[in-house]
């Protein structure tokens, strides 16, 4: 359904951040996008959602297609109407609004008459939010804020959800909870998900397909179970040695093994 064909992204007309990125998300799929800091994962998401424009970025080459329509010339609000919602990194919420107002804000662009039932739907995914509905969202805990943010995206009934590091700064237990819900949303709502993550293990566990990015390019891709078995992925992202054992920090070399990727 979503296809990025060889896109190149430039910030402020000079800074080249993405080079020849191609990527595909099929109907109802979860696709993981992995990579180190600064690899260009967030930029890839922003070029899909159009939010690149708010940061003086531009898709200068290639194109982005969604169900046959071209996205890379559209404004963010038009892309939202195509059914694509980006959940921004760092649990960005309308901090002075209540939880329920935050959720309703997710429907403002569409204005379907089903806001009430949609709010209830979000509460079935995140029961804890029901008790917090009148609370000012800025004072919630990190995990609760992440729930609000995903719930707000869900309110728009997106066909494709772009999730930017939902695990950022959360306790491992909550990360697991969030990932379970992401998988549930994918199965029950048939929402395709493009998931950017640092915790490769958790992301590959629920994803169907994975891409690995490094310095603005995609260097590796494949079905998620194949990637989990890939030696390089194991060493660089899963922290395992060839023997499949967890590395002890005593043995970690203080230099990083470099790999020249083909591609």
């Amino acid at each position: 359904m979503l296809k990025l064909n060889n896109i190149e992204v430039v910030y402020s007309d000079v800074i080249l951040v993405l080079r020849g990125v191609s990527l595909e998300v099929g109907d109802g799929q979860i696709v993981a996008l992995l990579g180190a800091n600064g690899a260009g994962k967030t930029t890839t998401l922003k070029s899909i959602s159009g939010l690149l424009r708010t940061e003086l970025g531009q898709v200068t080459r290639g194109n982005i297609e969604f169900n046959g329509a071209r996205l890379d010339r559209l404004l963010p609000e038009q892309i939202v109407r195509h059914g694509i919602i980006q959940v921004l990194e760092g649990r960005r919420l309308f901090a002075h609004l209540t939880v329920e107002e935050n959720l309703i804000a997710g429907t403002l662009a569409h204005g379907n008459g089903r806001t009430k039932t949609d709010v209830e739907m979000v509460y079935t995914y995140f029961p804890r939010l029901r008790d917090l509905r009148r609370r000012v969202s800025g004072y919630l805990s990190g995990g609760e804020q992440q729930m609000v943010v995903i719930g707000r995206a869900l309110m728009a009934h997106p066909k494709l959800m772009l999730l930017d590091e939902p695990s950022l700064g959360l306790a491992p237990l909550i990360v697991r909870e969030i990932f379970e819900v992401i998988q549930k949303i994918n199965q029950q709502e048939k929402t395709a998900i493009l998931l950017v993550e640092q915790i490769a293990q958790a992301a590959l566990a629920i994803a169907h397909h994975g891409y690995v990015m490094e310095t603005g390019r995609i260097v590796l891709d494949g079905p998620a179970d194949k990637l989990r078995e890939n030696e390089d992925i194991k060493e660089f992202y899963l922290g395992l040695t060839q023997l499949g054992e967890r590395k002890s920090y005593r043995e970690v070399k203080h230099y990083k093994r470099r790999k020249r990727w083909l591609g």
Partner: peptide, 23 residues
């Protein structure tokens, strides 16, 4: 009102407001 909520939301964070589809 929804328009009022949209204005309050946009007042907080412009980029976030755009990400939920507000102009």
């Amino acid at each position: 009102t929804r328009a009022g909520l949209a204005m309050r939301a946009a007042a907080e964070d412009h980029q976030l407001a755009q990400s939920v589809g507000l102009s």
